[in-house]
Computed example of a mutant assay.
Amino acid sequence: MQKLARTIRLDDSDANIFARPAESGEWAIPGGFEFSNWSEADLAGKARQSFANGWLSLDSFGRATLVAVTAIEAAELEAVTRRLAEHFVTIYGAPDVDTALPVAREELAFMQELCADHDPNVLLLVQRELTGTGVKESFRAITPAEAEIELVAIHGGPDTPDGSV
């Protein structure tokens, strides 16, 4: 069984923190390549949030905080790979899809490696930091049994302006 991950929304926070939020259910990869030429000056507002912990969806090319591991069929994986290659042509100036396909395959193979040792429905988080040598990514897995709601949701009450209880 091949695995990949889909974006997941447990609340509406992604819609508020990302300039282009992904919809729930989109295939996703880390997408750190988007930040390869960034500097501290680029890390402001919603762009900072996308950089710090956003997964790149492969439908809308929006960002999501969480992804969940799931199975993917070979034909669907090939379609997603092609869509990413087309994105490389349109957004990053790759000369053509055939030239971009090997890079797209590498990106998806990396994501499959991240998912390989996890059961379906395990949640994955990405964290990025800008270092002197470039972007450093780290990943964390949360199994559904160990997920505490405080890890992924903000609770509030109607009686306080900031929503705290």
Score class of each variant (00 low, 15 high):
residue 160 T to A: 15
residue 129 E to Y: 11
residue 50 S to C: 04
residue 109 A to G: 01
residue 75 A to E: 06
residue 8 I to N: 04
residue 156 G to K: 09
residue 58 L to R: 02
residue 38 W to N: 02
residue 71 A to R: 13
residue 43 L to S: 01
residue 31 G to N: 00
residue 164 S to M: 08
residue 123 L to A: 10
residue 149 I to T: 12
residue 49 Q to N: 15
residue 138 S to Q: 11
residue 38 W to I: 03
residue 149 I to A: 09
residue 54 G to S: 12
residue 109 A to V: 00
residue 132 G to M: 07
residue 35 F to Q: 12
residue 38 W to P: 03
residue 61 F to G: 08
residue 26 E to I: 02
residue 14 D to I: 00
residue 88 F to W: 05
residue 99 T to Q: 05
residue 65 T to P: 07
residue 82 R to Y: 03
residue 20 R to H: 05
residue 24 S to A: 10
residue 46 K to A: 11
residue 8 I to E: 04
residue 17 I to S: 10
residue 113 E to W: 09
residue 156 G to N: 06
residue 116 A to I: 09
residue 76 E to T: 02
residue 37 N to M: 04
residue 141 A to T: 04
residue 38 W to C: 09
residue 119 D to R: 15
residue 151 L to D: 15
residue 162 D to L: 06
residue 139 F to V: 03
residue 63 R to C: 10
residue 89 V to I: 01
residue 17 I to N: 11
residue 149 I to E: 14
residue 115 C to D: 03
residue 59 D to R: 12
residue 31 G to D: 01
residue 48 R to V: 15
residue 57 S to A: 09
residue 51 F to A: 00
residue 95 P to Q: 11
residue 156 G to F: 05
residue 86 E to P: 06
residue 147 A to T: 09
residue 75 A to T: 10
residue 106 E to V: 02
residue 32 G to M: 13
residue 148 E to F: 04
residue 18 F to S: 05
residue 120 P to H: 15
residue 50 S to T: 08
residue 24 S to I: 02
residue 159 D to V: 12
residue 58 L to E: 00
residue 36 S to Y: 13
residue 55 W to I: 09
residue 130 L to C: 13
residue 109 A to K: 05
residue 54 G to L: 06
residue 53 N to R: 10
residue 4 L to E: 07
residue 27 W to I: 06
residue 66 L to D: 05
residue 150 E to I: 06
residue 71 A to W: 14
residue 80 V to A: 05
residue 38 W to H: 03
residue 5 A to R: 04
residue 9 R to S: 12
residue 64 A to S: 07
residue 101 L to F: 01
residue 8 I to C: 03
residue 102 P to I: 04
residue 73 E to G: 08
residue 89 V to S: 06
residue 8 I to R: 05
residue 81 T to R: 13
residue 59 D to S: 12
residue 137 E to Q: 15
residue 36 S to F: 14
residue 107 E to L: 08
residue 159 D to L: 06
residue 157 G to Q: 15
residue 9 R to F: 09
residue 110 F to K: 01
residue 137 E to K: 15
residue 117 D to H: 08
residue 130 L to N: 13
residue 150 E to C: 08
residue 124 L to Q: 01
residue 43 L to T: 00
residue 29 I to C: 06
residue 144 P to D: 08
residue 104 A to Q: 02
residue 94 A to P: 00
residue 72 I to D: 02
residue 112 Q to W: 00
residue 54 G to F: 07
residue 156 G to I: 14
residue 3 K to G: 07
residue 81 T to F: 01
residue 92 Y to V: 11
residue 95 P to L: 10
residue 124 L to V: 03
residue 46 K to W: 13
residue 75 A to N: 14
residue 8 I to G: 07
residue 53 N to V: 12
residue 155 H to W: 15
residue 20 R to V: 08
residue 48 R to A: 12
residue 125 L to N: 11
residue 106 E to N: 03
residue 74 A to W: 01
residue 81 T to K: 10
residue 146 E to W: 04
residue 31 G to R: 01
residue 44 A to R: 10
residue 155 H to N: 15
residue 1 M to E: 06
residue 164 S to Y: 14
residue 130 L to H: 04
residue 24 S to P: 12
residue 20 R to G: 07
residue 102 P to K: 03
residue 52 A to D: 09
residue 135 V to T: 08
residue 129 E to H: 14
residue 99 T to V: 08
residue 2 Q to Y: 11
residue 99 T to E: 04
residue 77 L to D: 10
residue 57 S to E: 02
